[in-house]
Amino acid sequence: MQLIPCPWCGPREEAEFHYGGQAHVAYPEDPSALTDEEWAQYVFFRDNPSGPFAERWSHSAGCRRWFNAVRDTRSHDLLAVYRAGEPMPEVAS
């Protein structure tokens, strides 16, 4: 089982975590101003790269806090983890 380094608790088994999809998708500032296309983009469309991907995880069976990670979707290697609110670190792809 893969170990995921929670930025608060340290490395824990993957089964303790819950996946949250793409990170840094901000809620629209003025939702009622969006066109249908823009709203569809916000609700349904996400990046789906083969390679490094910034994504959200929750340590749901541990400290129960959300954090962000950059993970290579080809190798599943975690390239960086960082706390919510912190900027995405640079990673070599």
Binding site: M1, G21, N48, S50, T73, R74, H76
Partner: peptide
């Protein structure tokens, strides 16, 4: 598996 992945393998649990 819950996470996005292109690696053609998943987690044992």
């Amino acid at each position: 598996d819950s996470y996005n992945g292109y690696g053609q393998r998943g987690s044992f649990h």
